[in-house]
Design a protein around this nucleic acid. Sequence first.
DNA 1: TTATCCCTCACCCGAAACAGTGATTCTGGC
DNA 2: GCCAGAATCACTGTTTCGGGTGAGGGATAA
Lengths: 206, 206
Amino acid sequence: MICVFIVDDHPVVIEGIHSLLQNEKNIEWAGQAANAASCLGFFVNNTADVVLMDISMPGMDGVELCKIMNEKYPGVFVLGLSTFNQGLYIKKMMENGASGYILKNSSKEELLTAIYTVNSGGTFFSGEAGESLKEYEKSSKAQPELSPREKEILCLIAEGYTNPQIAEKIFLSPFTIDSHRKNLLAKLNVKNTACLIRLAVEKNLL
Amino acid sequence: MICVFIVDDHPVVIEGIHSLLQNEKNIEWAGQAANAASCLGFFVNNTADVVLMDISMPGMDGVELCKIMNEKYPGVFVLGLSTFNQGLYIKKMMENGASGYILKNSSKEELLTAIYTVNSGGTFFSGEAGESLKEYEKSSKAQPELSPREKEILCLIAEGYTNPQIAEKIFLSPFTIDSHRKNLLAKLNVKNTACLIRLAVEKNLL
DNA sequence: TTATCCCTCACCCGAAACAGTGATTCTGGC
DNA sequence: GCCAGAATCACTGTTTCGGGTGAGGGATAA
């Protein structure tokens, strides 16, 4: 018997999953929560085997909650749940100890497979989510990492500051800012500010 | 008795709403569809009073479907349904004849109120959706429309072309490109290319 | 017929960005 | 201790950007 708990701020989704699972004889409904706080509240005096966790919730989001759950209750498996397949979020969830990820438009079969797989210690990705993750990995690998300083300066450029302004703002020589800027262009393989910012926004580097 | 039909590609959502509505004595379940095509198929030989329609679906999206439904079956009221409150989509849905818009995280009461309101010819917005629409209206008013030429040049700037390069590409004087560029900065109220591109990407102007 | 907006082109000028090169310091890892 | 990389700073050019200003043609609507 697998005890399933769900955290989602959409009553409709909770209802839907509840409805899909209620006739499964190997699945027991542990309970539900509409936000991170009440989920944590539940686990103070109760437990579950698998937690279906929405990734985007008001207040603390799924990624944060996932991390806490994993630290406090390492025996509870977390299954990410989301409407969209955002590679970045999927990756973050996995880094924070989730055991899998499925989309809300998954079929009943897929949902059950995911629960069973995760409960037995496995990892499950719904097809689209897996591909999305791969896509993300690919695109993020193709882009070399930026140093903290470079990220900082990239943000300031995106906000419209010029080199002299940035220099004054973070107490550095304008020459230094200029160097960092050139490195940014080189690292991201673009030839001017327009491209740089477009790439930065698209790749969520800001 | 209000006959309710639902179009959504998420089985979970359909299940959830079905579950919420099944004990309502004034509500009858007309049926369901997972995409635009099967929805249209249903209405060839059947009908309903209110259609709950997901806005983002594979293939034809809710906005398109809403338009078609409104043309073919003007007596059927459409109630937009979405996870997020995207002002732009809400507006588009309304322009295409929707009677209201609710979020999937609405309560059962809100859902019922929406159905009753829409069925009697009214317009319903769930609180957040209404505000989102207002926000959108405000922000889109604050942003003056760009002329076709300006959009074209904005795109080319975002792709990394310089003024002389753009001029050569579209057979115009570099001075002209420069003028357009300055107009773009003025219209969007930003002070340099970095800000311009960031805004353009964020506002989906490309 | 004005008025308005878009598109086009033109010039001046200062500021900023970009290219190339090179140097020093200070880390962290092997 | 040595090496790699990040971070800092410096100088010299050329190119591009951005501010300001103005002007003429064309299309459209009041």
